[in-house]
Write a protein that binds this DNA or RNA. Structure first.
Lengths: 136, 136
DNA sequence: TCCTATACATAATACTATTAGGTATTTAAA
DNA sequence: TTTAAATACCTAATAGTATTATGTATAGGA
C-alpha cells in the first residue's frame, strides 16, 4: 500500500521538500523577531558571522527555525546602517567571513529589545493560557 | 522647571499621543500572531465581534497590545473566506455587530495554531534564555 | 564528477500591519 | 447644548519584513 509513497519520499528532492514543509510550519509567528534574535546571539557570543547565526539558531531550536538568507543578510545590513552592529572582515580557509558585533548603542538597544520580548511572551501567554494552573 | 512640560502633557491631544507611543513600543514582535490571537479568543468565548476583540486584547495585556482596526477587519474577512470563521449579523442598540465564531474546520485549525504558538514561545525562550535556572 | 556544505549577496514577489482616512450611532462631559 | 469620546464597522495607500528564487565562489565527500 505505502510502498510507492515510501519510494517517492526517499527521492532526495521530495524528501528535502518534506523537511522544508515541516520546518516552515509556523514561520508566520517568527515575523518581527529576527532582529531580536540576532542581537541576543551577538550579546551572548561576542561576534558572529551570518552563516554561523543561521546554524546556531537551527541548533538551538532543534531545526524548527531556519532563518532564510534573504531575510538574514538584509537584516544585518540594516542593523549595521542603524549603528547597532559593527562589521569586521576576516578570511578563513580562503573563504570570506563578515563578523558582526554589537556597538555600544547596540548593547543598550539589546537590553530594551529583550525586555520587549519578555513583555511579548508574557502577553501571549496571558492570551493563550488565561487561567494558569498554580502548582505547589 | 517641569511646569511647562506638565501643562503641555495635560493637553488632551499630546497626552493621547504619549499613550500611543507607550503602547506601540514592541509592536514589531506581534506581527504574525494576530490570527492565532483571534482564533484563541473565539475558541474561548464562543462568539465575538470585532470591536469586542480589540477591547478584550487590550484588557488582557493591560493595554500593552492594541490591535489596529486596519489589521483586524481584513484579518477577520480573510479567516471567513478561508472557512475558519462563520459570521452572523446582529443589531444591538441600533448599532450593527458582526459576530464571528469558529467553524468546525476553524476549531481543528486552532488546535494546530496553538501548538505552533507553544513551539514558538519555547523556541524564543531557548534563544533568549539559553541556560534556564532550575528552581526547586 | 557532482552534490552538499560553507559563505556571501540581491531582486521579485507576497504578505501583514500601520497610517490615515471614511460612515454612523450612543453616551458622557464641558 | 454642543462637543468629544466611545462604540462599531470599513478600506486604500504605504511601509516593512520575509519568502522564493536566483547568483557567485570555495571546500570536501560520495
Amino acid at each position: 500500500m505505502y510502498r510507492n509513497l515510501m519510494y517517492i519520499c526517499f527521492r532526495k528532492e521530495i524528501a528535502l521538500q518534506l523537511v522544508m514543509i515541516k520546518n516552515m510550519k509556523n514561520s508566520q509567528l517568527y515575523k518581527g523577531s529576527l532582529n531580536t534574535i540576532i542581537m541576543k546571539l551577538l550579546e551572548e557570543n561576542g561576534k558572529m558571522y551570518g552563516y554561523e547565526i543561521t546554524q546556531k539558531v537551527k541548533a538551538i531550536t532543534s531545526g524548527e527555525l531556519n532563518i532564510t538568507e534573504g531575510a538574514l543578510y538584509p537584516a544585518l545590513h540594516k542593523l549595521e546602517a542603524e549603528g547597532i552592529l559593527d562589521v569586521e572582515m576576516e578570511k578563513v580557509d580562503n573563504r570570506m567571513r563578515k563578523y558582526y558585533k554589537l556597538t555600544e548603542k547596540g548593547t543598550t538597544e539589546t537590553v530594551n529589545r529583550l525586555s520587549e520580548l519578555e513583555d511579548f511572551i508574557r502577553n501571549m501567554q496571558s492570551l493563550v493560557n488565561p487561567s494558569p494552573k498554580l502548582e505547589f
